[in-house]
Design a protein around this nucleic acid. Structure first.
Lengths: 147, 147
DNA sequence: CTCAATTGAATTGTGGGCAATATACTTCAA
DNA sequence: TTGAAGTATATTGCCCACAATTCAATTGAG
């Protein structure tokens, strides 16, 4: 192993660890904000999609969130048990499960409206830097996707 | 709820989701590279620390990785069962568990030496942008930490 | 010196992620 | 029309993440 390569095996120098840690820290920051809504961060992400499109199936939701049914099925069952969504098999194609926002689920949007701004303020970073960070993350995602 | 605030409740506009998705995608990208080493990404992170500092206790490791004993104890037991580390209670203070790299654990570093470069190439982004991304992630982490 | 407070690790319980597999349903071509 | 291939969801099993709790060991104030 060359000394040159060895240098890269240092935790503090790795972008990946920074991204990994920042992502977990962010999820932890959401925890307090989401506690009053009784949602976890992945559940909140699912609700974000449903607030835009109140009815879609598991596959469509998975494509938006980049998550598979092994993750979504139990998550959606938990949302269902809280009365926020309904899960019903499609009549046309019985393989498909339609997810629908309930009235209670729709109502929750009001309580969530302050969250994006709250997180923005907690980040303490200028908007421009956050937008650039988002852009780089999106680009990185697409590059790794393409492989 | 103002329409202004409502606009922010859109998945695609959220930095947090971009960061979250990029982080998961990155971990998935490591999976193939780490498979020959029989390591998961969090296990690889622990090994990175140990390759720099072959002996430290659980608390010290947790401080470096921002993980607690609830995560590390089972992870370290798995590394132990693979013969990569040893776990022994300190004689001076029996509350402390010392983690030590085994010879096999040290030897694994050679097989890992190409990984940082491989990931860099897979990212397809210029070094400068990656460094800037890392810097923003580190800054975001510190800001959220400070609350 | 003693006992209350603190500390380090482990355990428990809940909730993601995700690969692999299973199952039921649908489609399509021979 | 039938059987093979493809599709949508669910299940299982393993691993991480973390809050809350427990427990033993240590420390320190009085």
């Amino acid at each position: 192993m060359s000394a040159e390569h060895e240098d890269y095996l240092v935790l503090e120098k790795q972008l990946c660890f920074s991204l990994y840690s920042a992502s977990h820290k962010l999820v932890r920051s959401y925890r307090l904000l989401l506690e009053p809504l009784d949602l976890t961060y992945p559940q909140y992400l699912a609700m974000l999609v449903l607030w835009q499109q109140p009815e879609l199936n598991v596959k469509e939701l998975g494509e938006k969130l980049y998550l598979d049914s092994g993750t979504l099925t139990p998550l959606l069952k938990r949302l269902e048990s809280k009365g926020l969504v309904s899960r019903t098999r499609s009549v046309q194609d019985e393989r498909v499960v339609q997810i629908r926002l309930t009235e209670q689920g729709k109502a929750l949007k009001t309580q969530a409206s302050h969250i994006p701004m709250a997180i923005f303020q907690q980040s303490g970073l200028p908007l421009e830097q956050l937008l650039q960070l988002k852009h780089s993350c999106d680009l990185l995602f697409k590059q790794l996707e393409a492989l």
